[in-house]
Design a binder for these strands. Structure first.
Lengths: 194, 194, 194, 194
DNA sequence: TATGAATGAGGGTTCATTCAT
DNA sequence: GATGAATGAACCCTCATTCAT
């Protein structure tokens, strides 16, 4: 399998850097190849085409988010705690990798609808875990049991996403992590069972 | 002034349709011209370049959102009522113009950071009005007076945005307006002063 | 006749200035029109097309050279004197109109062969007068009676042309007129009957 | 280095032919590519842009003139002999390559001032060698020791240039080489020390 | 596997010219 | 005659992808 070979991740890491620094459309295959220290043609031994690099990159990075979230779900005390830890994790992974933040929040979206659908499919697994947390909270009385799970998920994810995108658009000028408690407080307030 | 001439809006409407149907990067100037019923060169009598069409389009459309919101602010009973009506308006304008929804939620984002900044600058006026509503609610006891306005704004706008984008990505398969009450309920719950 | 109407010369003078300042290919019809204070379309009431402006411009300006030279031929003492006065005239007209010098020496040549042929046809009349001077000198013993008139004419005109072009290319940094005596001395020495 | 690769000269030779046959502005990159038997994009592996082809072409071709002239300077008997051989060489190289003559005398001049300056810079080396010959002749008594070298050079080069341009404009209808003795005779007569 | 020279399709933009007023 | 808004043909260059080595 390609992803077990060293050059696969080498190219993906190069793509994250190159795309974050130059923007998706300004990042030619030759730039990624140069950054990765391989020839242009070598890229095509590991990826079908340029779009495939983006998809694979997102898949690999989402894997971290998902693995972390799975562990959070196993160790969290309750739904509120799990949601809180999920937000902490989401923020801290990106706060620690600004290149990746730039790519996921800005560059990845510069793609046509077809590519967006593929990205959404990958995101699905992550959002399903979020749904599980929400349902758990609805069933055990932490969250409003009558709320629409899809809308609740969209609020949670939309808020996280907008918060991070603003931080990226503002050139990381303030601490993302400082916003985590405020975000959690507002969201949990919105979800809670009155 | 350009925007008073009939062809200015004619080209913008054509651009909305062409971009919604083909995607921004797949929409050649010639496609917009054809859709507008003018020659390619005519586009350049009204717009500096392709990017300027996108910017102008967004500016003209945001004008509607802003004007509506200004009226809502003048006529709303209180902050909660104003926020509720703002969401209704935002949803209904886009529910009634799916082409525009596609452009604002998907195609407009397929632009480099520089263009995104210009778009954000235009959006600013709308978000400032939202901030005014939030502050009003914080001062009169409707909303949590200790919350961070920026984060609250990001929750409100992020939720609205994510909700609409999902609807577009799902090919308008369900009613966007049916989600409005759920969205409002969750958001107002999150903001309210306990 | 067009050339008797005031706007005809007005456009030609505007063209000389605009072309000298911007270069032939950078001089759009609209620039000439603006410089002339007329509408773009008005240009086409007086000239067939852009090329025709260039041709007409050259024709009108050559008329001055030719009229002056005709008078010189009538008043000059002998062939050497006439040649000397021709050079003086040629240099002084352009020394007094640097815009025109730029146009004739640089911009006018940025044209295809077809246009060059038309320009040459206009130049012909001037060169014929030069030939007359040369022949007169050959017949009365001033100039080498065995020389080839065409080659002699090419030496005289080529030297004048190269001298002026160098002056233009050097941004008029030195006095063109100071070179006239040197040019005359060398040329007359070359032509003279030993 | 680019110029050591076979395709570099292959493209230059193709450019000479294509430009001579169609004119500079009528010669699209695709025409040169076709003539050279390469793809359009390949041109850009060897040349920065269209203008760079013209510059490089002139540089490569001037190299021949300069190398020949350097040998002439080393082997010529005296200044008059060297000048005579220089003219022979200049005429014969172009007489044997009419495409090149068309390009240097007509097409190369269809360029803006900036390009002309670059061309002049390349020509400089050749004209410097000419200056050396003239100075040698002035110092050893062959040429008028009081003449202005710049003006003398302009006479020599201007005469050569005009002679060849006329030959090209007349569609090579007569023998260029037949004119060489006449040109030499006139020029040497003009330069000589009386 | 790895290379990198070669390919060639594709499009935003300019501007000379026209023509309805 | 005069206008200037509208036209639409034309082209340089980029860059994702291929393939012979």
């Amino acid at each position: 399998m390609n992803r077990d070979k060293p050059k696969y991740m080498q190219i993906i890491e190069a793509a994250v850097i190159a795309i974050a620094e130059n923007g998706y459309h300004q990042t030619q295959i030759s730039k990624i190849a140069k950054q990765a220290g391989v020839a242009d043609g070598t890229i095509y031994l590991y990826f079908k085409n340029k779009e495939d690099i983006l998809i694979s990159l997102f898949k690999e990075k989402m894997r971290v988010f998902i693995e972390n979230l799975e562990e959070i779900i196993q160790t969290g005390a309750n739904a509120s705690d799990k949601l809180s830890k999920m937000i902490d994790n989401h923020f801290s992974v990106l706060a620690n990798n600004k290149h990746l933040a730039t790519v996921t929040q800005l560059e990845l979206r510069q793609s046509n609808k077809e590519l967006r659908l593929k990205i959404n499919a990958i995101l699905k697994e992550y959002l399903n875990l979020l749904d599980n947390i929400l349902v758990e909270g609805m069933m055990n009385g932490e969250f409003n049991p009558t709320m629409d799970v899809r809308v609740a998920r969209q609020m949670v994810f939309g808020t996280i996403d907008e918060t991070i995108t603003s931080w990226v658009m503002n050139d990381f000028r303030y601490s993302l992590l400082d916003n985590a408690p405020k975000v959690k407080h507002l969201l949990l307030n919105g979800l809670k069972n009155n």
